[in-house]
Nucleic acid binder design. Sequence first.
DNA 1: TGTACATCAGTGAACGCGCGTTCACTGATGTAC
DNA 2: TGTACATCAGTGAACGCGCGTTCACTGATGTAC
Lengths: 217, 217
Amino acid sequence: MADSSAVFSNALRTMPKQGRAVQTYERLLDVSGDLLAEVGIERISTNLICARAGMTPPALYRYFKDKYAVLDALGRRLLARRGDILTLWLAEVSPRGAQAMAEGLGDVLTATWQATLNEPGGIWILRALRAVPQLAHVRAEAYAEMTEIMAAAFAASLNHPPRDDLWLRVRVALEFAFSADELLFEETRLPPEVIIAEATDLLRRALVEPIRQAATA
Amino acid sequence: MADSSAVFSNALRTMPKQGRAVQTYERLLDVSGDLLAEVGIERISTNLICARAGMTPPALYRYFKDKYAVLDALGRRLLARRGDILTLWLAEVSPRGAQAMAEGLGDVLTATWQATLNEPGGIWILRALRAVPQLAHVRAEAYAEMTEIMAAAFAASLNHPPRDDLWLRVRVALEFAFSADELLFEETRLPPEVIIAEATDLLRRALVEPIRQAATA
DNA sequence: TGTACATCAGTGAACGCGCGTTCACTGATGTAC
DNA sequence: TGTACATCAGTGAACGCGCGTTCACTGATGTAC
C-alpha cells in the first residue's frame, strides 16, 4: 500500500541495506518522535537524537542529509501510515455506496487517531510539520493526495457530482476531520469517544449528506 | 475589549512605561512575527530578533524574561485580536437570534482571517503556538475561553439546549472554523472567497442548524 | 522657567554552552571461489 | 567449509559558529521645587 517514493524523500543519503541498518534508521526516527514530544521542535537536535538512540552523530548522517531530512522522513512515515488507513477504508467501503461511507466515518476517524497515538510523538510530528517552513510542503502534498483519492472514491460511488465542487468540499472536510485529531489530543477532559462521535456527526452533516442530496437531486 | 491579564502574560519582566518603550515592545513583537514566517520557529533567535529590530539583546531582556516570553506575548496578542473579533461579532448578532448568527458566519470567518493576515507572521504564530510544548497552553486556554463565550451566546439566544452538549458542539465547530484559516493560507490555488463560502456552508450545516433543531424540538 | 535628581530605556561587549556537521578510522557482514 | 576481500555500518573526537543571556555602563525622559 505504502508508495515508497512518498515514504522516502530524496533528502536521504544512503538507503539502509542490511537488517541492522534498517533497525538503526527506524530507531532514529522513533527517538526523534519521542524527543519532539519531550523537548519540542526548537530544542530537538541531532546530537540529542543520537545520544538518546545510543549512537554517535555520523551514524545519523550516514542516512540523513541533514537535520531536516530526519524530520522530513519522520513526517512522511506518519502521513503514509495515516494515508494507508484512509485508502484501505475507502477501498473497503466505497463500493458499498454513500450510505456505507456515512456509517463508517467514525471508524476511519478512530483508526486515524489510533495510528497517530501509536506513533512515537505522533501529534507533535503533525504539529511540527505545520510549523516549520522547510517541512510544510510535506504535509500539504500528502493532504492534497488524500483529497484526490477520496474525491475520486466519492465521485465513483455517486452519480458523478461536479468534479471541482466535490474536490473542494472533500478538501475542507478532510481539513476539518484532521483538526478533530488535534482536539482529541488537546481536550483530554472529555472521553475520546464523545469527541469522535461529535466530530463524526458534524462531518456527516457537512460532507456526506450534502453530496448525497446533490447526487439524487 | 482586550482583557489585559490575557494579553500580557506574567512572563514579562518590566512593563513598558514610556511611549518610546511601548514602541520598542511592539516593534520586537512585529519583527518576531516576520522572522517566524521567514526562518521558522526553530531558527528564530533572540539575537536575530534584536538585530532585525535595530536593537541590542539587553533591550529585549528588559521586557521579556526569556525567549519563550517573546513568543508567548506574540501569541497572546494575536489571539486577543482574534478573540475580540469573535466577541464583538457575538455581541452584535446574538441578540438577533440564531438566524442572524447563521447568516453572519461568513463575515466573522472573513474578519478573523483578515486579522491573521494583517498580523506580521500571523499564520506562523498560530502554527508555532501549536508546535512548541512550552506555548501550547496559551492557545488551549484562549480557545477554551472563546468556546465559553460562544456557547453562552448560543444558549442565551436559544431555548437553553443542554449545556454540556452545546459546549462540546461549539468547541468542535470552533476547531473546525479555525482550521479553515489554515486552509486559506495553504490552499492558495483557490480564491479565498470560495474557500470561505464552502467552510461557512459546512459550519452552518454542522453547527447552527442542529442547534436550531434541538431548540425547536 | 530652569535646574538637580530619580527613574526609565537602551548600548557595548562578552560569557559558556550546545548546535550541526565532518574527518579519518575500526568493526561487522556479505560474497566469490 | 574455509578463507580473502569488498562493502556496509558505525565510532571517536573534534571544528567553528551562533545561541541565550548577563554585567556594567551611558543616554533619554520625567518630576519637584
